[in-house]
Amino acid sequence: MRLPLFAVCLFSAAAYAPVPARADMMIGGFATSAGQNHPLRHFHPGAVGSDAPVGEIDGSNTQLYQPMFGTYEPAEQVVYISDFGGKAIRVYPAFATGNVAPLRVLNPPLLGQTRANAPIPAHGELGVIASNCCIYTYPLRASGENAARIRGLNWGGGADPTTRLNNPTALIYIPATDEYAVKDYPPATPLATHIVFHARTANGAAAPTRLLTGAGVANAVGLAYDAGSRRLFVLRQMPPDGMGIRHGIIAIFADTASGDAQPLDTIEGSMTQLNLPDGRYFSGIGFDPYTSRLMVSNPGSNAAANRVLLFDYTPGVGGNVAPVRVLQGSNVSPYTVGIPFGVPSAPPNVIFQNGFQSQ
């Protein structure tokens, strides 16, 4: 039967309606020896407890050893993975599964052990933490051992402390201010952590644009960012109290905060499950912009005790709130769990066609 023209038009509009926004968590971790692969696992937003991942990138072709951190880049629909022990940034199709080889591998010797990365497609650049000391910027699609830097910010823990970069362990990019930000600490005082901000275009022994210091960021162990609400999330872990408990806090700041600023809000208290016995620690914190969800990972004493705590984030709402979901067990990581990050549950160009999803 032939459909009337208006019916055809309505069908066409419905067929190409975008899939409602949903997102999954992706997470890697640390294998215990260079001969082992650690998978990148992809979890449904409703996953809870020991639920299995909905997919994973795993196998010898992946080259993954210690994929501790990653970021999703939507324009190319890839993930940039910081392989710490593998001393490389490896790039994969974000929605691939199985024994997938990387699309690109960035591994110049200067990169060394890299803890984090920040793709900046608007400028065609990729910021990375290099050799546990510095911020280097490469072309976004650079690859290979001979890739040349665009620029680099020097270590500031030696004779020239100007950059204030001593041991940067987390990196984000703030589009509104065109700055990098890292979690760091001064030499010899790891408990006096601070957030160091640098202009994206800074090079060499440049001074920071600002520092976020003081009690609000003391004992920081992780840093995440939401460009939508322009909020920084600083994960803190306090020294043990008299009962042998290390209290965990998520301190929330405007992305323009500096100096001895106090957080706008915090997530802390017994209901949060952020309080850990002495000797236990966090891998880090991530923010999923697709579900507005904070994700905190906690390695267990063995793989069965690995955990990820997921909190819904609404600006202005904090306090002693319970996580909306807790993932736990070797399904999170077969070894030591890394830092979670958000990806869409399907590519942005997936459409409904005849009742089915297609691309």
Results as ranks from 00 to 15, higher is better:
3 L>Y: 13
3 L>K: 14
9 C>Q: 13
9 C>I: 15
10 L>G: 12
15 A>V: 02
19 V>Y: 09
19 V>C: 04
20 P>E: 15
20 P>I: 14
21 A>P: 01
22 R>E: 15
25 M>W: 03
27 I>D: 01
30 F>Q: 11
31 A>Y: 02
33 S>D: 14
36 Q>L: 08
36 Q>V: 02
40 L>V: 01
42 H>K: 14
46 G>F: 13
55 G>T: 08
56 E>S: 10
57 I>S: 05
58 D>C: 06
59 G>R: 08
60 S>Y: 07
61 N>T: 10
62 T>W: 02
63 Q>E: 14
64 L>H: 07
64 L>Y: 14
67 P>H: 06
69 F>V: 06
71 T>G: 00
74 P>Y: 00
75 A>I: 04
76 E>C: 04
77 Q>A: 09
80 Y>C: 08
82 S>F: 06
84 F>Q: 06
87 K>D: 10
91 V>K: 02
92 Y>W: 05
94 A>F: 09
97 T>G: 11
106 L>I: 05
110 L>V: 14
113 Q>G: 09
114 T>V: 07
116 A>V: 05
121 P>N: 04
125 E>I: 02
127 G>K: 10
128 V>C: 08
130 A>C: 13
132 N>M: 14
135 I>V: 11
141 R>L: 11
148 A>G: 05
156 G>F: 14
159 A>L: 15
160 D>K: 09
160 D>I: 13
165 L>V: 01
165 L>S: 00
167 N>W: 08
174 I>H: 02
175 P>C: 07
178 D>G: 03
181 A>I: 02
190 P>K: 06
190 P>T: 04
192 A>L: 09
193 T>Y: 06
193 T>P: 03
194 H>E: 14
197 F>L: 11
200 R>F: 05
201 T>S: 10
203 N>A: 12
206 A>S: 14
210 R>T: 06
213 T>R: 14
219 N>E: 02
224 A>L: 00
225 Y>S: 04
234 V>T: 06
239 P>W: 12
243 M>V: 09
245 I>P: 03
251 A>Y: 04
252 I>M: 10
253 F>Y: 15
255 D>Q: 05
262 Q>H: 02
271 M>N: 11
272 T>Y: 12
274 L>Q: 01
279 G>S: 11
282 F>D: 08
286 G>A: 07
286 G>W: 01
287 F>P: 07
289 P>S: 00
290 Y>S: 13
291 T>L: 09
291 T>G: 02
303 A>G: 11
303 A>E: 12
306 N>L: 12
306 N>T: 08
311 F>M: 03
318 G>Y: 00
319 G>D: 03
326 V>E: 02
334 P>N: 14
340 P>V: 03
341 F>K: 05
341 F>D: 12
344 P>Q: 15
344 P>G: 04
346 A>Y: 13
347 P>W: 01
352 F>D: 03
359 Q>E: 15
359 Q>K: 13
